[in-house]
């Protein structure tokens, strides 16, 4: 594979089987650097399996893939060092303070103590959480936790950040703010790979892929997808694809 400079993710015929069941069926796509890439699909369409493979959590059955220029089959160690991951379930520790959570996650990415301290302060300032850095996570409202979890996934300045349904259960205003953070991140050159159930969020993405039964059924910019399926919204596109 070539030109890894412009592409942070290159996937060719990637497949994952569980016994006889093919969860991900020969998917092929590229994600450009600094792009916000929406990864859509109904429950059970194979999104989570795909994202887990790309993060090095699950080994593929066949195919080829490069993430951050590293091979998915034998360089998972390097891949893990260069990506950030925010799971759909809450990934901060409730019984640790805001600051301790950030220091912990920075620590497991091998960040130096001093660098980590200054990064933490910058991050807390930006989120306006500086004054409550010694407050336990369990005492924060959900929206703040979500934003903090996202920032924490970025603490080691990864090339790509994987967000697995990051806005589940959050109010519309917070979701809006969350997407502003995503834009800012992408603007700084970090690739954002995001799965979501909200079709209005799909409109915010640079490009969107829609998975149906383990295959990528459509992949383009939201505008072109709407044209292609002569739909008014991504919601319609999704319904036409997922329930033929």
């Amino acid at each position: 594979m070539s030109d890894t400079v412009n592409h942070s993710i290159q996937v060719r015929e990637l497949t994952r089987k569980f016994g006889d069941f093919t969860a991900v069926d020969h998917i092929t796509f590229d994600v450009k650097q600094g792009e916000i890439f929406g990864f859509l699909g109904a429950n059970g369409a194979g999104k989570t399996t795909a994202i887990r493979m790309l993060c090095g959590l699950l080994s593929p059955t066949s195919g080829q893939a490069e993430v951050c220029g590293y091979d998915l089959f034998d360089q998972t160690e390097e891949i893990k060092r260069n990506i950030g991951y925010m799971s759909q379930r809450f990934s901060l520790y409730e019984d640790l303070t805001v600051e301790e959570n950030i220091l912990f996650y920075g620590g497991i990415y091998g960040m130096k103590r001093r660098e980590l301290r200054s990064q933490t302060d910058i991050l807390l300032d930006r989120l306006g959480l500086g004054p409550i850095k010694r407050v336990l996570i369990s005492e924060l409202p959900l929206g703040w936790k979500q934003k903090l979890a996202f920032s924490t996934a970025l603490i080691h300045d990864p090339a790509i950040v994987f967000l697995d349904e990051p806005t589940g259960g959050v109010d519309p205003l917070t979701r809006r703010q969350f997407w502003e953070m995503i834009y800012e991140t992408a603007h700084h050159g970090t690739t954002v790979f995001v799965t979501t159930h909200y079709m209005d969020e799909a409109e915010y993405c640079d490009r969107v892929s829609i998975m149906v039964d383990g295959r990528i059924a459509a992949l383009d910019t939201p505008r072109k997808l709407k044209e292609q399926f002569s739909a008014n919204s991504m919601d319609e596109v999704f319904v036409k694809l997922a329930r033929p």
Binding site: I83, Y85, S87, R89, L92, Y105, I108, A153, F162
Partner: peptide, 13 residues
Amino acid sequence: EMGTMEVLLASPM
């Protein structure tokens, strides 16, 4: 259960 294990496994640890 909390989902933090996923995040840990996705880290270089």
